[in-house]
Design a protein around this nucleic acid. Structure first.
Lengths: 129, 129
DNA sequence: ATTTGATTCTATAGTTACTATAGAGTCTGT
DNA sequence: ACAGACTCTATAGTAACTATAGAATCAAAT
């Protein structure tokens, strides 16, 4: 299949697919006579792997590492575990930040009845302090 | 004061301060004979306002709008309220995403006892599906 | 008066993960 | 033979910074 079809099947945009290729996340595909990229179902699987990782917010760099690891099936998977744990820690950290952020935003929102002038606005006041 | 002092007092890096200036978030400061930026306490307050907004993850563009609004003290503050509400909605959305993400990561982490080969690794398996 | 070290200046490039565009070439259907 | 759809490469843009190079300026010590 050509890149358009791969794009539809995978849900990744054509540019994203070409970008992943440039970044070394996808193997260089065979080309047609006219230099069009030609993919098989294995390539689609590779791309779906990348997409799944991205949906977990794993960085392209880490995905690259995961792919390398996948190609060494006999080795220990402890680095894989470490990577996921690290990802979890990152998510936890961001959630904590967001909770604090939400609390302050809510407090600010309640500090202004919305029918004030800007001069009297509780939100602007709290941002100023 | 010069930019180094402003940087220390505000906690923003020198480059960030210059960047904010370029982006129109800070007024162009006076310059010394040797062309060094010279700031007063008002400039520090401006910068602290920006920093506070950034800590709430408000975009530079929105901060610019807030600054414009601040300069019209007699107008209604409803746009300020709308902006904060929108920011809250954004935070809520991201929190929801993160919760889903965390759940999947946790499930994955528990799918592998960490002492497997990569071939048998539950994490890689679940990423592959 | 000079020199050293710290600070500042501008302009430019790099970061992440894409998205968008221009301009050219290729393929398919009529 | 030609229109329209698809693809190609190369390049620039996005957000919010951070980092660098190379030059100029300043303050303090000699």
């Amino acid at each position: 299949m050509k890149i358009g079809e791969l794009s539809k099947k995978s849900g990744c945009s054509i540019q994203t697919i070409r970008y992943y290729e440039r970044e070394g996340l996808l193997l260089n595909p065979n080309r047609s006579e006219g230099n069009f990229r030609l993919y098989d179902s294995k390539a689609l699987k590779q791309l779906e792997f990348v997409k799944h990782c991205r949906s977990l917010d794993i960085s392209l760099n880490d995905i690259k590492r995961l792919i390398e690891l996948k190609n060494k099936p006999e080795e220990s998977c402890s680095s894989v575990n470490a990577l996921i744990d690290q990802q979890l820690a990152l998510v936890n950290k961001r959630m904590k930040e967001l909770r604090a952020l939400k609390a302050e935003l809510q407090q600010m929102a309640s500090a202004c009845g919305s029918n004030n002038t800007i001069e009297a606005c509780g939100i602007i006041k709290s941002l100023d302090s």
